[in-house]
């Protein structure tokens, strides 16, 4: 018998223990079940994550769509003009220019005008009759423009006799009122 044959014969006697194999088979089956459960859990979590991501994309798109219908001139200052309980209320008519109408309202003796650095007003910012007259004169001939305000803003609140309120902003030479921009000449 040569070495190969002797080696093969010797190896044939080397076999794993039956009890060991039975235990191993059981372990493998358990491992298989765990692996399947993990796969299923991974699949479910992946699907959930995808669904959440898809929902997030839809929400973002819907919000983007909402934003796209906002006036093109919308910026931080402009938003201040139209925010609050007065957002959709206008006291202006279409026949006369808004600055002219605003100017007349400011000049009326029964109106009150407040001025502030921010969109909060109190009595300390109440304009005198002279100040109101000066302001009315300043804005009377303002023309609608595409210019965007670049300087710091001064906020105004006009309270009419009937309780209507008009908020407007003057940034340098730009008047923002009723969702529009007017260049002060």
């Amino acid at each position: 018998m040569n070495i190969k044959e002797r080696y093969s014969e010797y190896q044939r006697n080397i076999t794993p223990d039956k009890e060991f194999l039975d235990n191993l088979a059981e372990k493998m089956e358990r491992q298989k079940i765990i692996a399947r459960q993990r796969k299923r859990a991974l699949f479910i979590s992946t699907v959930s994550a995808c669904a959440a991501a898809a929902a997030a994309v839809v929400i973002i798109n819907v919000r983007s769509a909402d934003k796209s219908v906002l006036p093109i001139k919308t910026n931080e200052s402009a938003i201040n003009v139209s925010t609050g309980v007065f957002a959709n209320k206008t006291v202006f008519n279409d026949c006369v220019s808004v600055p002219t109408q605003l100017s007349e309202m400011i000049e009326k003796s029964d109106s009150t005008v407040y001025k502030s650095r921010e969109n909060k007003f109190d009595d300390s910012g109440k304009l005198s009759a002279e100040q109101r007259a000066e302001l009315a004169k300043k804005i009377k001939d303002a023309k609608e423009t595409d210019m965007l305000p670049s300087q710091s803003a001064e906020h105004y609140m006009l309270v009419l006799e009937n309780g209507d309120v008009v908020k407007f902003i003057i940034s340098g030479d730009v008047l923002q009122v009723d969702g529009k921009y007017f260049e002060i000449i």
Binding site: I14, T15, P16, D17, F20, L21, L24, A25, E26, M28
Partner: peptide, 28 residues
């Protein structure tokens, strides 16, 4: 199934392990 797989290949794998370790417990 695990049992069938072991029937087919446990000897092969075990013998390779044993040839290197020359020890049954290590081969297991």
């Amino acid at each position: 199934p695990a049992k069938e797989l072991l029937e087919l290949y446990s000897d092969t794998v075990y013998r390779i392990a044993y040839s290197r370790t020359q020890n049954r417990s290590d081969a297991e």
